[in-house]
Design a protein around this nucleic acid. Structure first.
Lengths: 201, 201
DNA sequence: GTTCCTCCCGAACGAACGTTCGGACGGATG
DNA sequence: CATCCGTCCGAACGTTCGTTCGGGAGGAAC
């Protein structure tokens, strides 16, 4: 009888959509009740509090995106290609799950105590993965700490402007960001051909 | 008798600090009353609503940062240098006014109606300024829209990690980000000397 | 001395919030 | 049949919220 688990996941999904649209604080349990079809009190059968709902979203999402990144790196050996693979996976995942990722990015500071700690740990694991990738490519003059946070900024900021229904395809976005981060905005002396010849162009 | 204006600015300053620390929605008017030394009702002598307080912060800050950028560009003619000057100004201003800028970045979607519209216009003017700068440098293969939003992501994300009391100096941060955006993380074939020789190093 | 205006506040208002209480329903168990 | 347990809910509880009300204090105007 997984129907109980299904109901919980339905609730988490509804909460994700509304938290993303309206923000965590601005969303009331009555909003969630209305949108999920459950009664106000019924929600508390599945979840201890409103904060636990946010915790479930963030915990699941970090776990998912971390596992996805690890899988995307499998078999890729060239350090530069590994960075590119990380960026590509992050952005394709992000654009494919905008509401989850917006809740991850925008409601970063709402949890407290144990829940906060556990999400922080999952986040740390994911961030450390990028850190290790960045240290394994040659980066002469740039502070790698600044570079890492800056890359996350490039990628995570998209929840403020990217429209999945628009003309920019996720893979194209991922390639642009990867090229931007690795080679910069100005035309470099590196062969542009090798970049334009990437699959799916 | 500017003492009334002073009191208002004191209030706006207090609100900026608390909104930045706790978030707009999580801050109550009673919090502001306590922190500003004014009575709860007294606040409403200076301000029509809690939202107007947020509006004043955002409106003033966008105006200030836009004017600062225009001033920073004055006399700079080389297109590439103009982009670098914009980045440098944005980051030095940001690191120097972290609370204002956090409120600008994080509480972007809280206003409604006329106030929202006016802040949106000020923001538009500032963003358009960067847009025009980016179009005037050679950027062969990269989508300028993606590049512009990405650059803002690089810069605005710092409110999530940068510690002004830490070891990274604002000017160093600004130079790193500028170099990262223009030339990328990988060592380019451009002379690194010209970058290392920038003033203040 | 009366009126007016600016500045300011204690106290309250109505609404909305997250959460809990007590119990209803239905299938499984003995 | 009685009992129990997982599922679910209407109604309420206590709190906090943004805002308003009615008025006081004090200086300026006439």
């Amino acid at each position: 009888m997984t129907s109980s688990d299904d109901r919980l996941q339905h609730l988490v999904g509804t909460a994700t959509a509304i938290f993303a649209e309206r923000g965590f604080r601005a969303t009331s349990m009555r909003d969630l009740s209305r949108a999920s079809g459950m009664s106000l009190a019924g929600i508390y059968h599945y979840v201890r509090s409103k904060h636990e709902l946010l915790f479930l979203i963030q915990d699941q999402c970090f776990t998912e995106v971390h596992a996805g990144a690890v899988a995307a790196l499998e078999g890729v050996t060239d350090p530069e290609e590994r960075v590119r693979a990380f960026i590509r996976h992050h952005l394709v995942f992000f654009t494919g799950h905008m509401d989850k990722m917006k809740v991850l990015s925008h409601e970063d500071d709402e949890l407290e105590g144990t829940m906060r700690q556990q999400v922080r740990e999952r986040k740390r694991a994911y961030v450390d993965l990028l850190w290790s990738l960045l240290h394994q490519v040659d980066h002469r003059p740039v502070n790698p700490v600044v570079a890492g946070y800056t890359l996350f900024g490039m990628m995570n900021w998209i929840y403020t402007w990217y429209n999945p229904a628009g003309t920019i395809r996720p893979e194209q976005l991922a390639d642009d960001v990867a090229r931007l981060f690795l080679y910069g905005y100005l035309p470099s002396t590196r062969p542009a051909v090798e970049l334009a010849a990437s699959p799916g162009g």
